[in-house]
């Protein structure tokens, strides 16, 4: 929820190239205090590079990058005191325990939260004395978030916090992240899960090939493109998309993961016409269904590709 005032993050015209690869190619956005801001995009879209520039791990080639109104390249230490960072897939000192690691990270900051409180917050009480190498994937991610919260940061960066986790572990992390929002911390996260972005983020930036394609609240992003709902069924070569584009109510069509999707302003008319067409060919559309358009549809519409690829 943007609450006005100075933005916590301000990025304008950020560029970062690696040789010929334009990892980030002119990105601009702002994040307000207390907001959960998500960067959504496939692997290699430039999400991680962007977030690592903000964290002070990488230097930008050009562009303005400010955190708390401070230039990241000139006030690194001051910024690092006030942010919490979770990197993508980091294992920590493998032979230190959860408690020892949190204690250790506490010594890096001028102020730190009590270790037991952090362990409770991420629900690792039973594993407090376990070596980090012996934790499960979900537990390691939660430890990693505990370490990001050691200094009670105003701004937390989470880089793909749930990648590689099973659905249950993912849900439990979502609850944790929603808890951060409730504490009025600003959160910036990256993900390639649409559902995650929809569930957690106040605003989302969709990134691909180093550019932000579209940015806004999830509902608005969908509503901007899709007043329609989606009618979908298993693709069948005898029902080519081109033939279905002029069925009643259909505004747009798409092919996605073996499914044909018809975006429609009049679902009843579209389904009636579709069934009639199929019947004329003695066919029955398999797995026919209707849903609201999702971020997935937005991404597909923006890039012509499904995000899962």
């Amino acid at each position: 929820m943007a609450q006005g005032g100075e933005p916590v993050i301000r990025v304008a015209g950020l560029r970062r190239h690696y040789g010929d690869v334009k990892a980030v190619d002119g990105v601009s956005f702002e994040v307000a205090r207390g907001e959960v801001f998500g960067m959504l995009g496939p692997n290699g879209a430039g999400k991680t590079t962007t977030i690592e520039v903000l964290e002070g791990i990488r230097t930008p080639d050009s562009g303005t990058v400010e955190v708390f109104g401070l230039d990241v390249s000139r006030h690194q230490t001051a910024i690092k005191e006030r942010i919490g960072v979770q990197l993508q897939s980091v294992s920590l000192y493998p032979r230190l325990t959860v408690t020892e690691l949190i204690d250790l990270f506490g010594t890096f900051f001028s102020r730190s939260m009590p270790t037991t409180q952090l362990i409770d917050a991420v629900d690792l009480g039973e594993r407090a004395k376990a070596w980090s190498m012996n934790l499960s994937g979900g537990q390691q991610q939660r430890l990693s978030i505990a370490l990001a919260l050691v200094n009670d940061p105003e701004l937390v960066f989470l880089d793909e916090p749930t990648t590689g986790l099973d659905p249950q572990a993912r849900r439990s992390l979502w609850e944790l992240i929603k808890g951060l929002q409730a504490q009025c911390k600003t959160v910036m996260l990256t993900t390639h899960y649409m559902e995650e972005a929809t569930e957690l983020c106040d605003r989302v930036a969709i990134m691909d090939h180093g550019h932000i394609l579209e940015m806004g609240p999830v509902k608005e992003l969908i509503g901007r493109r899709f007043r329609e709902r989606a009618v979908f069924f298993d693709s069948n070569p005898r029902l080519p998309v081109a033939d279905l584009a002029h069925l009643g109510g259909v505004t747009r069509t798409a092919q996605e993961d073996g499914q044909t999707v018809l975006y429609s302003t009049d679902v009843a008319a579209t389904i009636g016409a579709l069934l009639a067409t199929a019947d004329g060919l003695s066919l029955e559309p398999h797995n026919l269904g209707i849903r609201q358009a999702t971020l997935e549809d937005v991404f597909l519409d923006l890039t012509g590709r499904a995000l899962r690829d």
Binding site: V85, L87, S89, V90, Y93, F109, S110, L147
Partner: peptide, 15 residues
């Protein structure tokens, strides 16, 4: 420690 990203993670703290 570098390969596992530990050095990078420490680099994101004021250390």
């Amino acid at each position: 420690q570098r390969e596992k990203g530990i050095l990078k993670r420490l680099g994101a703290t004021p250390l």
